[in-house]
Design a protein around this nucleic acid. Structure first.
Lengths: 139, 139
DNA sequence: ATTAGAATTTTGACTTTGTCTAACTCCTGC
DNA sequence: GCAGGAGTTAGACAAAGTCAAAATTCTAAT
């Protein structure tokens, strides 16, 4: 799954299917995320989008990433004290986080089970459950 | 457990027992964390320590919190994109995170089981496993 | 074609969190 | 008392992200 070869066209479709008006900048930002799906910081995206020649401002990158998150097109990963990472893979999964290098690796949710979590406080709804396994070069 | 009424004296003991030389500032910072144990940001600690009159600099608060983490006296929580929280409770446990308010609540690890996590890459060691249940006022 | 209005983007200043360096203070053992 | 190390300080700095106002682009109706 998710092995599609993304083109600007397919990204535009993806945007539309999430109720997002596909503007030039949004397509470029989406393309940067989905072309070669990785965990990216806002700064990386900004650099990727402007690699050839400047075409998108910092504010737009931040606005757009927030929009993508709101519309459920990408996921936010809060795992590093310095920067937020954006994860184009929105299917349920968890992460290894290599503390020394900052490297993130997916853990497919299939097969992982969590048992014994307490009830939520009344009136609260789960927005997401994230397991982070912090690792470091060993022993 | 952990219901001790902490005094400056008992905090000094705690520091010594973690191999930390108990200076005036370190005791005050430790006291701020353990007196009424909550999840605190560095800024909060700074404010608490200097509430009566200035006695500790920003740099010392950051240095000291890092030292406490290294020595295993408190735990770092990376859960909010803006700030790191410091958790005086180092026993294994997980967290609810109320996204709207930023409120953190403990989930005791007793009774929670995780199954099916894949092997670590060779040469890697687990530094910690954290489950974060993000919640919001619901439906 | 024209134009009003909405949506989007930009610029650049600003805020917040955290880091760094060099100087300074304090403590300890001699 | 003094040298040396440990700890602390001020303040400048850096990085990530936010914000408001102006500028641009898009849309749809005249």
């Amino acid at each position: 799954m998710e092995l599609e070869n993304h083109t600007r066209e397919s990204v535009a479709q993806l945007l539309r299917s999430h109720g997002i008006n596909p503007t030039h900048q949004r397509i470029e930002i989406g393309f940067a995320l989905f072309e070669n799906p990785q965990h990216r910081s806002a700064d990386e995206i900004l650099a990727m989008v402007n690699a050839r020649h400047t075409e998108t401002s910092k504010a737009t990158v931040y606005n757009t990433l927030k929009l993508f998150v709101d519309k459920g097109m990408v996921r936010e990963l809060i795992v590093d004290p310095n920067k937020v990472f954006y994860d184009p893979n929105t299917s349920a999964h968890h992460h290894f986080y290599e503390v020394a290098t900052g490297e993130l690796t997916d853990i497919p949710a299939a097969g992982v089970h969590i048992e014994g979590l307490p009830q939520l406080p009344p009136g609260m709804v789960t927005e997401g459950i994230e397991i982070i396994v912090r690792t470091r070069p060993g022993r």
